[in-house]
Amino acid sequence: MISRLEIENLALDRGGRRLFEGLSLQVSAGEAVALTGDNGAGKTSLLRAVAGLLRPSAGLIDFFGASGVLDPEEARSEGLHLVGHYDGLKGGRTAGEELSFWSAWTGGAPEAALEALDLIPLLGLEVRKLSAGQRRRLALARLVASPRALWLLDEPLAPLDARMRTRLGELMTAHVKGGGMILAAVHDPLPIPAREARVGA
């Protein structure tokens, strides 16, 4: 179980260009951090680096649990969720099939998420027929279906309507109150109290 994330002196390169360097950041249990920065500053890349999908050019990303430093691979596969622009949902399959698969893949059960994100009316629909907001809700369902300590969210609010933004805010509050952590790349402020960390500049 991850209870603290430490990023130390991190530098990331994409396509031969240095996105940022010297970035240090800590997220502790019960904390939400909003990553801000210009377009292309490296917010998404930072989230992908924390998830282990990008190799940092310099610096350290460490996960700590109750008993000290955790094995990064295990911490990532069992301790975090990444919800980004690309949601892994297949257009030709129904929302129910996709929700069922991704909850099984992350080791959870979809039932809890149905109610929380108001997904029941969508289950029989093909993913290609969903709106951007409905797709995002389906992707966010993973967060609820299989509880994990660290949420890495990339523009989670962008396509959601006002009611669902409030709903997601409630879910985030409950997550943080329960000792969870949120690291979210945003342009609009998060719907919950969050520390701001600037990327790039």
Partner: peptide
Amino acid sequence: ERDFEDGGLDLLALGS
């Protein structure tokens, strides 16, 4: 390719 295009490959790589 189909999983690469929709980001599913990231999530599969993140799995246990």
